[in-house]
C-alpha cells in the first residue's frame, strides 16, 4: 500500500495534453473486416505520459482501432488497415516494421484477464525471456519483482510466486497481466476494457494503478464506462459508428461536448 499512497500524491493535472509531446498519431486510418468498413477515415494524436480514453457505444470500432495500434489485427483473417499510425514518427504499417519489435514497445491488456496457465513468476518472466532481456537468472528475478511491484501485486503474491497465475482472483489476475505487459519495458500500454470483468473494488485498484503508471507510460484505455473515462483519463475520444466524432481534454468533453452525438451519449440518450 506504500506505493499506492505515493501514486495518490501525483498531481491530477488535466490540462497537460498540450504540454505533452505526441507519442502516437494516426492519419486517415481505415479498417475493414472483409466487407465491413469498421473504422472510417480516423485521425488522432495521442500524447505521451498520460491516459487517453476511447469511449463510445458497443460496436463503434474503439477496440478495433486500439488493436490497430500494436497490429493485433494482423492475427485476424480478412482484416485490412489503410492509412498510417505513427509511433514516434515511424509508421508502424511500413513494410520494414517488425510486429514482434513493435509489440515489445506497445503492450496490451485485455478485457478478460488472460494469465497463461503457468506460475505467477513465469507469467511475468514470459516477455523478458522471449525477448532475451535478462542476462541471467538474478537479473530476470529482479525484473519480475520490479514489474510485480509496479503493478502493485508484489505484496500479495510474494510468498507464492510459483503457484499458478490462474489461481488468483480476477482483479489480481488483471494486475498480473499488467505486470506481464510492463515487464518488457513498453512505451505504450493499450488497455481494452480492462475492468469490465471485475467487481467495483478490483476496478478501483486497477484505476489507481493506471493513474500511477501514467507517469512513465503512454496509456490508452478503451472503456464502456464514462465515469471511468472521467476518473482516469486526461484525453477522451468519442467513437460512433466507426468514426471518431470528437476528441479533447477529458474535463471539457464531459462538461462541454461540441458534438450533438457526444452530448447525447454522455447524457445517456443512447449507448
Amino acid at each position: 500500500m506504500n506505493q499506492m499512497s505515493t501514486a495518490r500524491a501525483t498531481e491530477k493535472n488535466t490540462q497537460m495534453v498540450g504540454e505533452r509531446s505526441t507519442r502516437i498519431s494516426a492519419r486517415k486510418v481505415n479498417i475493414y473486416y472483409s466487407e465491413k468498413h469498421a473504422i472510417k477515415d480516423l485521425s488522432i494524436e495521442i500524447p505521451d505520459r498520460s491516459v487517453s480514453a476511447f469511449i463510445g457505444p458497443s460496436g463503434c470500432g474503439k477496440s478495433t482501432f486500439l488493436r490497430a495500434i500494436n497490429r493485433m489485427n494482423d492475427t485476424i483473417d480478412g482484416c485490412r488497415v489503410d492509412g498510417e499510425v505513427r509511433l514516434d514518427d515511424k509508421n508502424i504499417y511500413d513494410k520494414d516494421v517488425d510486429v514482434v519489435q513493435l509489440r515489445s514497445h506497445v503492450g496490451m491488456v485485455f478485457q478478460k484477464p488472460n494469465p497463461f496457465p503457468k506460475s505467477i513468476f513465469e507469467n511475468v518472466a514470459y516477455g523478458p525471456r522471449i525477448h532475451g532481456l535478462a542476462k541471467n537468472k538474478t537479473d530476470l528475478e529482479e525484473m519480475v519483482v520490479a514489474s510485480l511491484k509496479k503493478a502493485g501485486l508484489f505484496e500479495e503474491v510474494k510468498d507464492r510466486l510459483n503457484s499458478p497465475g490462474t489461481g488468483l482472483s480476477g482483479g489480481q489476475q488483471q494486475r498480473l497481466c499488467i505486470a506481464r505487459a510492463i515487464a518488457v519495458n513498453p512505451e505504450v500500454i493499450l488497455m481494452d476494457e480492462p475492468c469490465s470483468a471485475l467487481d467495483p473494488i478490483a476496478t478501483a485498484r486497477i484505476e489507481e494503478l493506471i493513474d500511477e503508471l501514467r507517469q512513465n507510460y503512454c496509456i490508452i484505455i478503451v472503456t464502456h464506462s464514462m465515469q471511468q473515462a472521467a476518473r482516469v483519463s486526461q484525453l477522451t475520444a468519442f467513437f460512433h459508428l466507426g468514426t471518431l466524432v470528437e476528441t479533447g481534454d477529458t474535463n471539457t468533453m464531459f462538461t462541454n461536448p461540441q458534438d450533438k452525438r457526444t452530448q447525447d451519449y454522455i447524457t445517456g440518450r443512447f449507448g
Binding site: 515511424k90 520494414d96 516494421v97 517488425d98 514482434v100 514497445h105 532475451g132
Partner: peptide, 17 residues
C-alpha cells in the same frame, strides 16, 4: 527514437525468426 525494424535489431531477433 524506437527501433521498429527487424534489420536494425540485435542477433537475437534473427535467431528467433
Amino acid at each position: 527514437m524506437i527501433e521498429l525494424s527487424a534489420k536494425g535489431s540485435n542477433g537475437l531477433l534473427a535467431k528467433r525468426y
